[in-house]
Amino acid sequence: MSITYLEAIQAAQDKALEDNESVYIYGQDVGSFGGAFKATKNLAKKYPGRVIDAPISEDAMVGSAIGASAEGMRPVLEMQFADFSTVAINQIGNQAATQFWRTGVPCPITVRLPSGGTEGGGPFHSQSMEAIYAQYPGLIILTPGTVEDAYSMLLEAIEIDDPVIFCEHKYLYYHLKADRLPHKNLPVGKARIARAGKHATVVTYSAMLHEALLAADGLKEEGWDIEIVDLRSIKPIDTDTILASVARTGRLLCVSEAFPWGGVNAEVISRVTSEGFHLLDAPPQRLNAKDTPIPFHPDLWKTHRPTSQAIASSLRNLLRY
């Protein structure tokens, strides 16, 4: 048996609906159609009245989920594309994220963001929004990069009493497969050493994890052992695991598919230089997408985002320092 990243997300929602009557799914086309990517395939039929088509109203989708959560529900929202969640950014950042701090009443909603670039996606169907949401206090931001994490972290997200932004990568939907779904996994908030090494650390997450792994395979042939930290969770960020890795390697490259200004890479480098400056043998480096909108044409897109070749090149420069 093999299961894809997308099927894992469907299976996690199936299990959540099965296990907890308070869970419902709300989003555009998620009902009998099964969602634009089929992440809710067959769920409307299996759970009548609990997998509901929404009008094209991201603001009202999130607002109503916030209200329903105060009645004991655990809404799971599907944004058709992460890019469209900007329409709901007010409800997410100002309403959901502030509620617990303002009132003491938790807001357990999960917002699924089909994120990141694919060939032909273009400027408005490709974005990575994790850094924007991480800026708001009161949100948890998850970025699973494996089939196992997509499954276990989504289940955990739905159980968390706070608003969770679940950034699932569209490129991984069909490309990534596992033999089975996990029974046990690392909890939310813990990073994972995806590959052990000793010469340099790459801190990354989501689809870039796999580009980094490819780059590390290539550099192995040149005699370099690259350690790769998969963040899994952007907020909270597991600074201890990052610092422990940098302590082993002395060199740090951060890789993210998001736009370059600020963001996860900048946050990681800031923490490492502040708390682990003495561990560094070279200036920490970062690699992001380019500071332009995301291009439509595959030839442009492949250059816009970091690739295994670009990561390998950055690592060679870092290792030469």
Binding site: S22, Y24, G63, S64, A68, A70, E71, R102, V105
Partner: peptide, 30 residues
């Protein structure tokens, strides 16, 4: 007071309407 049924408004006008709707949706689910 959320538990008492009175929504603590944020400043962004109109955004509390769907929150009230969500309370009604939640009650319907229950």
């Amino acid at each position: 007071n959320i538990h008492d049924g009175m929504i603590p408004m944020i400043s962004h006008l109109g955004s509390h309407i769907s929150v009230v709707s969500g309370r009604l949706i939640g009650k319907r689910f229950n």
